[in-house]
């Protein structure tokens, strides 16, 4: 990568100086009459490495996946059978596990987003209220963001096992009746996965809200107080509305994150028991790598990609309209 830069750099400096400038001006004068445009050098070579790497590699993979999604292929046989759109038809009409995975993704997104937002705002408000040991608390809440889920997975497997520390804790605080095999049964496996995710990402939500709250105009808060608003009223009517931009961004991030979920359900519950923690990522992995249904996995991948794109576009548009409305109202 550096080599290419060096070569281009050398060429640039040759054409630079007084002799190079009139040529540039002549070349771009027709296309863009603005003075500023004439002063700009052509930028295509500069973005080329990013396009080759990002667009090249990724679009190549998407195209390849799209092609494979029309095959009935085990990933090894030299003559895969072409089946047209059959994989897609099968996914939508006769694959209960796919719909299960979709449902889990939706539940997962709603629960983790609401919980992280609530916890993030609560922590941010508390840390802004001059409590003692604030820095220590912040570090404790933020450390999980830095730790790799793959490294924490064995810890959670141990913690939520039948003889694990979570059950031990329940017994010692007088909730012994709740003791159960948390990750071993269908009803509680998904909540455990969601709890782990909330544990992991609340720190980031909190730091973002904390920063956003520092931007709130103090005089507005004082004015509200003078008008007789209590702490709760201030939170609902002034603090929360001014955090909207952060909340929208976190919603986009959370939705795409939910679609990408893989590490935690794979390593903590292996997508089970009985598909109880199956997500699209884990399902694609199982189909493609473990069962060698490469064509089917590719069709699932394409669906996942389209859903992710659609959600990103919808949320982006909604987010923009909201901001515009707000500006208009003022």
């Amino acid at each position: 990568m550096t080599e290419t830069t060096g070569v281009r750099g050398a060429r640039m400096s040759h054409s630079g100086g007084t002799s190079g400038r009139p040529a540039l001006r002549g070349g771009q004068g027709n296309a863009s009459p603005a003075r500023r445009q004439r002063l700009q050098a052509p930028g295509l070579p500069w973005i080329l490495p990013a396009l080759v790497l990002g667009v090249g590699l990724i679009y190549y993979c998407i195209g390849y996946t799209g092609y494979m999604s029309t095959l009935n292929w085990d990933g090894a046989s030299p003559n895969p059978e072409s089946v047209g759109l059959n994989n897609y038809v099968r996914i939508f009409t006769s694959d209960p596990v796919f719909w299960k995975a979709v449902w889990h993704t939706v539940v997962f997104f709603v629960v983790t987003f609401v919980a992280q937002t609530a916890l993030g705002v609560i922590f941010a408000v508390m840390m802004h209220s001059r409590i003692k040991l604030g820095i220590l608390y912040k570090v404790i809440v933020f450390v999980p963001v830095v730790l790799a889920p793959a490294i924490m997975a064995p810890v959670f497997r141990q913690m939520f096992s039948i003889n694990g520390q979570f059950n031990w804790l329940l017994e010692h605080v007088g909730l012994g009746a709740l003791v159960q095999p948390w990750i071993g049964q269908e009803s509680t496996a998904l909540p455990v996965i969601m709890a782990i995710t909330i544990w992991q990402w609340t720190g980031l939500t909190f730091v973002l809200y904390f920063a956003a709250m520092s931007q709130i105009d103090q005089s507005m808060l004082e004015a509200a107080r003078i008008d007789g608003a209590g702490n709760f009223r201030t939170l609902v009517s002034i603090i929360w509305p001014s955090l909207r931009g952060t909340t929208v961004a976190l919603a986009i991030l959370g939705a795409i994150g939910a679609l990408k979920t893989f590490d935690v359900p794979w390593l903590v519950t292996i997508a089970g028991p009985n598909n109880a923690t199956q997500f699209l990522g884990t399902y694609i992995y199982q189909m493609t790598i473990q069962l060698a249904h490469v064509g089917y996995g590719a069709a699932l991948s394409i669906i996942l990609l389209l859903v992710a794109l659609t959600i990103a576009i919808i949320l982006q548009v909604v987010g923009r309209e909201r901001t515009r409305e707000k500006k208009g109202a003022r």
Binding site: L259, Y285, T288, L305
Partner: peptide, 14 residues
């Protein structure tokens, strides 16, 4: 567009 891409999609082609 590449922002939204889940990495699991890249597995087989890569």
């Amino acid at each position: 567009v590449c922002l939204t891409l889940p990495e699991v999609v890249l597995l087989t082609p890569l």
